[in-house]
């Protein structure tokens, strides 16, 4: 049969043959929820989000209220998980700690993504010596263990939420630079970039309207993965006394405070660590699921 594209019926026939109708959203959902462990991670994150949103309603006590007549009380009774050295309710502090962890994780990953993507785009488009210098510096930063880098930056910025977010974000930036730079280098070879260039589009226009949208899937996967990593890093910094300081309810510093009472009240340091592990685990699983669903080429690779 001769196919005449100008003929409307033929064109529709051809279109149908070439592109079987696939509902992208349905496909995404099917692939994303295919692995049971991803479903578990997804449900856990929903639960954590719920706890963070309704912390005020769920927690039985004010997480900052000190009850000095009731310090280091045993689990059970009036206080479900007992109280810390200042008589604050551990369960309520764990609940409010969810807020801190999620806020720090999300803002850190987003700050790192914003900085890293811009630098990566610039490096990918600059070519020549500028790209070499940026990528060399990125390599140099990646060679330094991230915790060491975070300790240096966090102690210079002084403890507190903004300092921690920035310190951890800086240590995550090189990963985003590499990712974006690599994407730009491969996407630049595409015909649509050539077409845009031959129409006289500026490099900035090409970067923003043609390259960036095509980097989004791997970026979303990376951001999800990095949220877990950022929460873990914040906890380690807070444990070392360089992150979020008490009285703010943060799991890392709670674990450090509780560590002194390990012999009598082990829950004080063990419970916050367990919470960290569950949250980090769920973000890592969601990241895995997103990677499978958004980027079939990367399926099966480890990170």
């Amino acid at each position: 049969m001769d196919i005449d594209i100008a003929n409307k019926d033929d064109f529709e026939l051809l279109e149908e043959e070439l592109l079987p109708p696939v509902n992208e959203v349905k496909r995404f959902i099917r692939v994303f929820f295919r692995r049971k462990i991803v479903v578990v991670g997804f449900i856990l994150v929903i639960i954590f989000l719920f706890i963070a949103a309704f912390a005020g309603l769920i927690s039985p006590y004010d997480p900052y209220e000190q009850d000095l007549y009731n310090v280091l009380s045993d689990p059970g009774g009036a206080h479900l998980l007992g109280t810390d050295a200042l008589g604050r309710d551990l369960f309520s502090r764990l609940i409010y700690g969810t807020r801190t962890a999620l806020a720090v994780g999300a803002s850190t990953a987003l700050v790192a993504a914003a900085i890293g993507t811009v630098i990566g785009l610039i490096a990918g488009f600059a070519e020549g010596p500028a790209q070499t210098i940026i990528m060399r510096l990125t390599d140099a930063m990646m060679a330094i263990p991230s915790l060491i880098l975070q300790i240096i930056i966090a102690s210079i910025l002084k403890a507190g939420v903004p300092g921690v977010v920035f310190a951890v974000a800086i240590s995550l930036v090189p990963g985003f630079i590499r990712l974006t730079n690599g994407q730009v280098l491969s996407l630049k070879q595409n015909d649509y970039v050539l077409a845009a260039r031959s129409m006289g589009s500026s490099r900035i226009r090409i970067a923003i309207f043609h390259i960036l949208p095509n980097c989004l899937s791997p970026l979303i996967v990376q951001i999800t993965m990095m949220m877990g990593i950022a929460i873990l890093a914040e906890a380690s910094l807070s444990f070392l006394g360089m992150g979020i300081l008490p009285p703010t309810a943060a799991w890392g510093s709670m674990a450090y405070d509780g560590y002194r009472y390990l012999t009598t009240q082990p829950l004080l340091s063990i419970a916050p660590g367990l919470a960290i592990m569950f949250l980090v685990f769920s973000f890592s699983m969601i990241g895995d699921g997103l990677r499978d669903a958004l980027d079939p080429k990367l399926r099966g690779t480890t990170s």
């Binding site: 380690s236 444990f239 660590g273 592990m277």
Partner: peptide, 11 residues
């Protein structure tokens, strides 16, 4: 991969 180092130590 997901558990904090200090927590494993404490456990």
């Amino acid at each position: 991969i997901t558990a904090p180092t200090f927590w494993i130590g404490i456990l």
